[in-house]
C-alpha cells in the first residue's frame, strides 16, 4: 500500500506530458481508434455472414487461430517492419486482436436467432434487409454487445503492452517502472489500467441495459 501512496501522492504524477491525465487520454485515444476500426470491419461482416451463412466455417477457424497469435510478438514485428515512432503500426495488432471476438459473437448472435422468429418476420412481409435490421439485430444484440465488450477490454489491456514499443498510454508507467526498478510506478500503473478495464466492463453492462429491448432481455 506504501507504493500506492508513493505513486498517487506524488504531485508530479498529476501534471505535465507524462502525468496521469495525459497518459490516460493517450491510452483512451488509441484504444478507441483501434476499437472503432475493428468494429467497423467486424460488425458488418459478422451480420453479413450470419444473415447469409456464407463463409461461416472460414471465420470460425480463422478466429480460433487468431486467439493463439501472441500480441507482443505481432506488435514488435509490425512496428519493426513499419518503422518505430508512429502510432499507426501499433494500431494494426490491436485491430487484429479486436476483430475475432466481435466477428464471432455477431455471427453467432445472428445465426442463433430462432428460425420461427425469422420465418414470422418474412411472413409479415419484411424483406431480407428489413428482417436483418428490425428482427435479427435487436434479438442478436446481447451477443453482439458481448463481442464488442470482450474486444474493448482486450484492446484496453493490450494497449498497455504498446508502451514497450515506445508508445504513450498508461503502460508507460509499468514499462518504465520495470526498466528503472521503480515498483511504485509499476503498481500504480497496473492499478490504473485495472480500473480502466473495469470501467470499460461496467460501461458495457450499462449499454446492455439501455440498448437491449426489454422483450429480448426477458427471454434470456
Amino acid at each position: 500500500m506504501n507504493w500506492l501512496a508513493d505513486f498517487f501522492g506524488d504531485p508530479s504524477h498529476w501534471s505535465g506530458p507524462d502525468g496521469i491525465p495525459v497518459r490516460l487520454l493517450e491510452h483512451l485515444e488509441f484504444s478507441a481508434a483501434a476499437f472503432l476500426v475493428a468494429a467497423l470491419i467486424a460488425v458488418p461482416l459478422g451480420l453479413f455472414i450470419g444473415h447469409t451463412g456464407r463463409g461461416a466455417l472460414v471465420v470460425v477457424v480463422a478466429a480460433n487461430a487468431a486467439r493463439a497469435l501472441p500480441t507482443l510478438g505481432l506488435l514488435v514485428l509490425v512496428v519493426l517492419l513499419a518503422g518505430v515512432g508512429t502510432v499507426l503500426p501499433v494500431l494494426i495488432p490491436l485491430i487484429v486482436l479486436a476483430i475475432p471476438p466481435i466477428l464471432v459473437n455477431t455471427y453467432q448472435g445472428v445465426r442463433g436467432v430462432d428460425a420461427d422468429l425469422r420465418d414470422a418476420a418474412y411472413g409479415m412481409g419484411l424483406r431480407g434487409r428489413q428482417v436483418l435490421v428490425r428482427t435479427l439485430i435487436p434479438v442478436a444484440l446481447p451477443l453482439i454487445l458481448l463481442g464488442l465488450r470482450l474486444a474493448a477490454i482486450q484492446v484496453v489491456s493490450t494497449a498497455t503492452i504498446a508502451a514497450f514499443v515506445g508508445l504513450g498510454g498508461l503502460g508507460r508507467f509499468i514499462i518504465d517502472g520495470l526498466a528503472t526498478k521503480t515498483y511504485a510506478d509499476v503498481i500504480g500503473g497496473a492499478v490504473l489500467v485495472a480500473v480502466l478495464a473495469l470501467a470499460v466492463q461496467f460501461a458495457f453492462v450499462l449499454l446492455d441495459r439501455v440498448a437491449v429491448s426489454p422483450g429480448v432481455r426477458q427471454s434470456r
Binding site: 503492452i161 509499476v186 503498481i187 497496473a190 489500467v193 485495472a194 466492463q201
Partner: peptide
C-alpha cells in the same frame, strides 16, 4: 471471475512481481 478476466495480464504480472 469476470473481473479477474478483464484484468490485463501485464497488470497481474506486475502486481505479483512484488
Amino acid at each position: 471471475m469476470n473481473v479477474t478476466y478483464s484484468l490485463p495480464s501485464l497488470v497481474l504480472f506486475s502486481i505479483f512481481l512484488s
